[in-house]
Design a protein around this nucleic acid. Structure first.
Lengths: 211, 211
DNA sequence: TTCTCAAGTAATCAGTCGATTACCACTGGA
DNA sequence: TCCAGTGGTAATCGACTGATTACTTGAGAA
């Protein structure tokens, strides 16, 4: 219908660019259906290439998923780092309070549904040997960043992560589809996304175009 | 090699009991691998019956998963209700503060890994038409309970749910396996489970029997 | 005792999916 | 210009899985 989707022999492209394109497509697909629910063929179609090419590019479906997780974590930490960097000058009183900046950065990451949802799917598959190890390492990497680089206290990290997991869940459950019809859903979303509710609703394509 | 697992023609049983047994097994399997990752055969083996019987009992795999979600929500709300009921008398000052009681009830539910993890898997599959609808309805049911029956404010529900989602994630990711080796994991778990860390570690079977 | 229905299985099928193989076509340097 | 390597596909295979069918067995009411 729209965005990423071709059909013909797929215009030639440098492998690195194609890889990034496939990773982006895979992130979307894994985010929607999880590791087991996603198929390499769905990823291939979303990326506009053939299924065997996707598999050969990463070796196995599992390796592809791990690549998606790694890329998502890189993006997450990257966004956090720029938020942290741009936070200092804008803070005249000198004392540390990067919560706002990092929170906003996180909220913006929600724009790519697949990114945080793929991570979330990975988190929940902790029983899987390889995926679990990757997920734990990534989660702890984020923890350490918040604790050490961002200067959060243990309680602050804890609160920040809890907030993040709730947001991920609300996006995953597509709570926004009930925003207009269920008062509880509306209140919950308004509370969880103080000023961002409209923004989130829009990018979920759940709202009529509205005036 | 322990708990639920038989082999021979499965001793005869009343359908209702068998159904509960299968639901318990399915909860464990879905909790570990998610909806798509779990197989009806794995559920059957865990319940000690044949695979066709599992399917015929619920019609489809999806119906089985929905039954698991419904049962999990019933248990969750049931545990909340008893916690809320037993909370009144123990509170001499009269003012409302059921947070402790409900939090403890939730922590105890973590003992059944599958219960909250199956829910979590359902939550994240919000894009699926049927599962998503069931998950949203259940989530909102919990929200309303906390808001109306437990008397939480919108902010309190929000905080309580965030905490819950983080706990679910920590259980799903099996963070406890890194408790002994990674200081960050230890700090995170100690912060998230103030007094319950040891308890959680034990029931994940991740700790050596310890003195 | 007998008869019937509920509890349960074995066998098997059709669709799906990840992976493999063999092949094709462009592009850029010698 | 040629040719080698890279970017890509078509065809297909084997394993897995959810579902279906047809059959078996035990318990309890008449």
């Amino acid at each position: 219908m729209s965005s990423v989707n071709e059909q013909a022999p797929a215009t030639r492209m440098k492998a690195e660019d194609r890889r990034e394109l496939v990773l982006a497509a895979a992130t979307a697909v894994f985010g929607e259906r999880g590791y087991f629910g996603a198929t390499t063929d769905a990823v291939a179609k979303a990326a506009g290439v053939s299924q065997p090419y996707v598999v050969r590019m990463f070796g196995t479906k599992e390796a592809l998923f791990l690549a998606v997780l790694t890329r998502a974590l890189d993006r997450l930490l990257g966004a956090f780092r720029v938020a942290l960097a741009g936070d200092g000058p804008a803070h005249p009183d000198g004392s540390a309070a990067p919560h706002r900046g990092l929170g906003a950065a996180y909220a913006e990451l929600l724009a790519d549904r697949g990114l945080l949802l793929s991570l979330m799917h990975g988190f929940i598959l902790g029983s899987d040997t390889e995926i679990g190890a990757c997920a734990r390492a990534g989660f702890l990497q984020v923890y350490r960043f918040l604790r050490e680089d961002a200067g959060f206290s243990a309680d602050e990290v804890h609160e920040f992560l809890a907030e993040g997991m709730l947001l991920n869940t609300l996006v995953g459950i597509r709570m926004a589809v009930d925003y207009d019809t269920d008062p509880a859903a509306r209140e919950l979303l308004d509370t969880a996304l103080p000023t961002k509710a409209e923004f989130l609703l829009a990018l979920e394509g759940q709202r009529k175009p509205q005036a």
